[in-house]
């Protein structure tokens, strides 16, 4: 517990530092950080709808954060969460349409399962390439992202598949029965958010209290030492990437089941990449990822209001993500707080 507190302290300080730097930047451009901040917070929290949107917005970030953090603990960089979640969202949309006649109780798990399995394919390919051929997973996952973007665009448009609903690049609306709502009515806390937190808790336990988690972190901390105590590197690589793909899939599925109620082309504003910032800020700890996911969700959700009320383009929030990544990644800056990272990512090989 003490260790958890210590691990959480550093990222919080870094997030504050990043916000401080951002405020400084605003001052430099003659904007008032106070007004901008107020606009941002108002956008995120003002009404019940705003709050609900903010909380729902944390779900994909928590999942992509986990999808990056778990492989990271194994010493791998899953930059493919974006492609994985798009593929999953598409699979979810299609499955829900094709099997729309099934009862919701059967359809829901089916949708999630198929989306998960489909998203695990590219993650598995990247893991396989890393463990068998030594191709760095950053290269493989990025290339796979581009392949997935094109593939899904094409599949959506193949006329004989009839996936497109009219002229818009989206699948048909999913049945009402599998649309996700609030877990506790009136709070804005959705079923998906509860599920996300649950998954994070499970991930926390697996990572820090079980043998597979021990082996995974050992391989991330020192692959050669892990090997000599009998950890099979190839299995950890493939396994953690598959888990990463599965976690990313939940982000895509949630977007379809809770937010858009169909697969819409371009639904992801880069959740997969924000996941990197979420994972790093969360110190690659599942529970830290939950907090970091909420933090970024507030920023993203408030960004529209900030744009409208304070005139700061909402894309500026993206720069804050980058700033946080750089701060967390810089050993010297981080070291001056405390060392809190799991393992090294290794060179391109």
């Amino acid at each position: 517990m003490k260790r958890l507190l210590r691990e959480v302290a550093a990222p919080v300080q870094l997030a504050l530092l990043a916000l401080g730097l951002a405020s400084l930047l605003l001052l430099l451009f003659g904007e008032s950080p106070y007004h901008v901040g107020k606009a941002l917070l108002r956008g995120a929290f003002a009404s019940r709808d705003d709050l609900a949107r903010t909380l729902a917005g944390a779900v994909p970030l928590i999942f992509t954060g986990l999808a990056v953090a778990i492989p990271f603990r194994a010493g791998l960089f899953n930059i493919g969460a974006e492609g994985q979640l798009i593929l999953a969202g598409f699979a979810a949309g299609v499955t829900a349409t094709v099997f729309a006649d099934l009862s919701p109780i059967a359809l829901m798990p089916l949708v999630m399962l198929i989306a998960m399995l489909v998203a695990m394919i590219p993650a598995g390919i990247a893991g396989w390439m890393r463990s068998r051929i030594g191709i760095h997973e950053v290269i493989a996952t990025i290339l796979l992202n581009f392949i997935i973007y094109s593939l899904v665009m094409w599949l959506l448009r193949v006329e004989s598949f009839g996936l497109m609903a009219g002229m818009e690049p989206k699948t048909a609306e999913i049945p009402l029965g599998i649309r996700l709502g609030e877990a506790i009515p009136g709070t804005g806390i959705g079923v998906a958010l509860v599920f996300a937190v649950l998954i994070a808790v499970v991930a926390e336990v697996v990572l820090f209290r079980t043998k597979p988690g021990l082996m995974l972190r050992a391989r991330g901390g020192n692959p050669r030492a892990a090997e000599s105590v009998g950890v099979r590197s190839g299995r950890v690589i493939l396994g953690s990437m598959l888990v990463g793909g599965a976690l990313a899939s939940f982000a895509g599925t949630q977007q379809v089941l809770e937010v858009h109620h169909s697969y819409i082309e371009g639904f992801s504003p880069g959740y997969g990449f924000t996941g990197i910032a979420v994972a790093l800020l969360g110190a690659n700890r599942p529970l830290g990822v939950v907090l970091a996911g909420l933090f970024f969700a507030v920023l993203r959700s408030g960004a529209f209001a900030m744009d409208a009320l304070a005139g700061i383009p909402r894309e500026a929030v993206g720069l804050l993500e980058v700033l946080i990544i750089l701060l967390v990644a810089s050993e010297l800056i981080r070291g001056s707080f405390r060392k809190a990272r799991a393992g090294t990512a290794g060179g391109v090989a």
Partner: peptide, 28 residues
């Protein structure tokens, strides 16, 4: 090839004793 410097001493010990029933209950 020996220790994982970024993990605790007890975790490093556990890594070398992963077949010890007294330290693990199933996967836990």
């Amino acid at each position: 090839r020996g220790l994982v410097a970024t993990m605790s001493v007890e975790e490093n010990l556990a890594l070398g004793l992963m077949d010890d029933e007294r330290l693990f209950r199933g996967p836990f």
